[in-house]
């Protein structure tokens, strides 16, 4: 399962946030779904994704036995093969793109592959319309996000919210997002290191490290 609908931000802020995912429906098209999900991810991997996930793990993953020397040299690279080969049951397979062109090219190839699974795109309302139009697709259904309602003033500022809500299951805490913002501002971590740290907490692989990197770069010089 993924959860990508309620990301905090204005439409413009999703210009580098396009999540394409396929999902089978039990009893309808789940026979042979594992191979189709792998085929979907293989297509996605050819179009420069910035993250991918198979419902159990993303391409940035925590380690069970971390070598202490890695404090000085942590691996920041995504593991696409691990995600593709890790598909072991019918479920959601997702890929994140940081440009409309890549999302569009990927969707076109997914259309041509005719896998038979439901395919959804999560992004700005206008972005999804544009991608569908370019691929000659008549959209089937749409779910709009009405955003967060917070009458009791629980939520933090927009910088923290934008970073934290990219894990739709809420595994990226406000405090961790805040800590990464501070560490980047204080020069204690590079944006690349900070976004990989955040992405490791998202087990579905839908966290967008490219958008997070941009947000951290912007936040570095912005007053809070």
């Amino acid at each position: 399962m993924t959860n990508t609908l309620h990301r905090y931000g204005k439409s413009e802020s999703f210009r580098d946030d396009f999540i394409l995912f396929c999902i089978p429906s039990p009893g309808k098209n789940d026979e042979g779904a594992v191979e189709k999900q792998k085929a979907f991810l293989r297509i996605c991997a050819r179009h420069s994704p910035v993250n991918m996930g198979n419902g159990n793990r993303g391409s940035f993953k925590p380690e069970r036995h971390l070598d202490p020397r890695s404090h000085w040299n942590r691996d920041l690279s995504p593991d696409w093969e691990g995600v593709i080969e890790g598909v072991n049951k019918p479920g959601t397979a997702a890929a994140v793109f940081d440009s409309e062109e890549n999302a569009r090219a990927c969707l076109q190839e997914v259309v041509d592959a005719d896998l038979g699974l439901s395919v959804n795109l999560s992004t700005s309302v206008s972005g999804a319309k544009e991608v569908a139009k370019c691929c000659g697709i008549h959209r089937h259904s749409v779910e709009y996000s009405l955003g967060f309602t917070d009458p009791h003033d629980h939520l933090p500022n927009s910088q923290v919210l934008e970073l934290a809500t990219m894990c739709g299951h809420g595994m990226v805490s406000f405090n961790m997002a805040r800590k990464m913002l501070d560490m980047v501002r204080e020069g204690r971590r590079t944006p690349d290191q900070a976004v990989t740290t955040l992405a490791r907490f998202c087990p579905c692989g839908v966290y967008n490290p490219a958008r997070a990197r941009r947000l951290l770069e912007e936040a570095r010089t912005k007053a809070t």
């Binding site: 038979g116 999560s122 992004t123 999804a128 569908a132 697709i137 089937h140 779910e143 709009y144």
Partner: peptide
């Protein structure tokens, strides 16, 4: 629905769009 939401003052910035590529493929 978009018109109803606009009339009610809800600005929908983001959406999840089902592209309609699913088919019934199970035997």
């Amino acid at each position: 629905l978009a018109q109803v939401l606009e009339d009610l003052g809800y600005g929908a910035e983001r959406a999840k769009t089902n592209m309609g590529l699913g088919r019934l493929t199970n035997a």
